[in-house]
Design a protein around this nucleic acid. Structure first.
Length: 428
RNA sequence: GUGGCUGUAGCUCAAUGGCAGAGCACCGGACUGUGGCUCCGGUGGUUGUGGGUUCGAGUCCCAUCAGCCACCCCA
């Protein structure tokens, strides 16, 4: 084979595409119910957009972006993350209109590109279902975003869910926390791993989510952000929790070590996890980013959002199906297979095929001109519901033998009435 | 980017350094115009790729590509 797909990217084959479409349809329907509107942004943006939003010192910006120069010398980057382009469009397309207080709720289904070493559940191109609500600091909105995600997961049969919740504070209270954190860690910094020693200066918050036991032990008694929140952040964090409980999402877990990898998060940070994915068990995450719109030159605009990795969600769905031993539903039988027998039947069969298609039927014929046995066998395997048999006898009588491939019953139908017959209820 | 495991037919997998195989799937026949069941037969392979060792390599060695696992990090 001369060509293979590049590393870390996947084809979605016809066998899999139904699963994708069902998930996408469910997500669109849920977003409509939650009153979020779809937005589609370009697949690449100015590199600077992501750098500013995500943060210079993050891994995503430092080593994971697909960045290239176009022929005009501009530095562009394939969508590395969903929120920054939406915020850009929110401002550039004036989605708030004249109403400065207007809440703008947007969703998207889009490919994301990150240069990472692939493994199951981690790809260089993946797809995210995301939602962003811009224009309100109401904690009920944070809860709404998590409710939307929960409905999506549940609707796909993913019931064994974990929701981790934290608050990472704001520019008012975070510096104090970082200072206390560094003070608590500093005496034992030498015991920590190289990564953590680097994090200490660059991004001390990340000291908290190092997985090494020795590092965790050092930070175990360090002050928690949630104990040091300012009044606003504390009130908001409480508000998110009570709103979640109010709408029946009372199974979340507070996780003071949860820190997200993008710099723009303020206050709420959350992550959904599901079994069946190995180490890549995060199937969605997000939080509040009250400073980002302003960072992009817009008016101060509080906002909250989520991104869900569809590849991982679908893996979790398959794992859930396997655990429940439900198995995939048998495909619905649909359509008519026109079985043409003999030379004289071929052209009338093509005419019938075209008539059926124009009448809205799914219809197919055997272009290989095989035996009736082969044609019926094929029609059965491909999941057709009917076989319309056209041979010498039928041509003479100007009718068609209509065979129900599920039951094996068959009847003679006048050729001109076939379309009508097929749209009648099956009880016939 | 670091470390490890694995690449044989469409799929799942065999083959002590000595003739590349099985099951499923696919095609055909038994059944000349009737699918699913059964039986019989058949097609299908540069053993991921490129080098090397050897009389001889799917098997050993090197490189490379890809997948997987654990990191880093993330969805």
């Amino acid at each position: 084979m001369q060509y293979r797909r590049p590393r870390g990217v996947n084809d979605i084959t016809p066998a899999e595409v139904g699963r994708w479409q069902r998930a996408e349809t469910l997500y669109r329907d849920l977003c409509r119910r939650f009153a979020y509107q779809e937005i589609r942004t370009p697949i690449f943006e100015q590199t600077e957009l992501f750098v500013r939003a995500i943060g210079e010192e993050t891994d995503l910006v430092n080593k994971e972006m697909y960045t290239f120069q176009d022929r005009g010398g501009r530095s562009l980057t394939l969508r590395a993350e969903g929120t920054a382009p939406v915020v850009r469009a929110f401002l550039e397309d004036s989605l708030q209109g004249q109403d400065r207080e207007r809440l703008v709720k947007l969703f998207y289904l889009a490919p994301i590109f990150r240069y990472e070493r692939p493994q199951a559940g981690r790809y260089r191109q993946h797809h995210q279902a995301g939602a962003e609500a811009l224009g309100s600091a109401n904690p009920a909105l944070d809860a709404e975003i998590m409710a939307l995600a929960t409905s999506f997961y549940h609707g796909l049969g993913i019931t064994e869910l974990t929701l981790l919740l934290n608050s990472v504070g704001c520019p008012v209270c975070r510096p104090g926390h970082l200072q206390q954190l560094k003070a608590a860690v500093a005496p034992r910094l030498r015991e920590m791993c190289g990564d953590c020693q680097r994090r200490f200066d660059i991004n001390p918050l990340r000291l908290l989510d190092c997985k090494r036991a020795t590092c965790q032990e050092v930070t175990a008694n360090a002050p928690k952000m949630t104990d040091l929140l300012c009044e606003d952040c504390g009130t908001h964090f409480e508000g998110v929790q009570s709103a979640l409980r109010e709408i029946g999402i009372d199974w979340f877990t507070l996780e003071p070590r949860l820190v997200r990898g993008l710099d723009y998060y303020t206050q709420t940070a959350f992550e959904f996890r599901a079994p069946g994915l190995g180490a890549q068990d995060s199937i969605g995450g997000g939080g509040r980013y009250d400073g980002l719109v302003r960072e992009f030159g817009g008016p101060p605009t509080p906002a909250v959002g989520i991104g869900m990795g569809l590849e991982r969600v679908l893996i979790a769905q398959e794992a859930a199906e396997a655990a429940a031993e439900t198995g995939a539903l048998p495909a619905l039988r649909e359509g008519v297979f026109v079985a043409a027998l003999g030379e004289q039947a071929w052209e009338p069969a093509l005419r019938l095929l075209q008539e059926l298609r124009q009448a809205g039927q799914v219809a197919e014929v055997d272009y290989r001109r095989r035996s009736m046995r082969a044609q019926l066998s094929f029609a059965d395997k491909e999941g057709f519901r009917w076989a319309a048999i056209l041979g010498e006898d039928e041509l003479r009588e100007e009718n068609v033998t209509l065979r129900n491939l599920e039951t094996g019953e068959q009847e003679s139908v006048k050729a001109a009435k076939l379309g009508d017959r097929l749209t009648k209820p099956d009880s016939q």
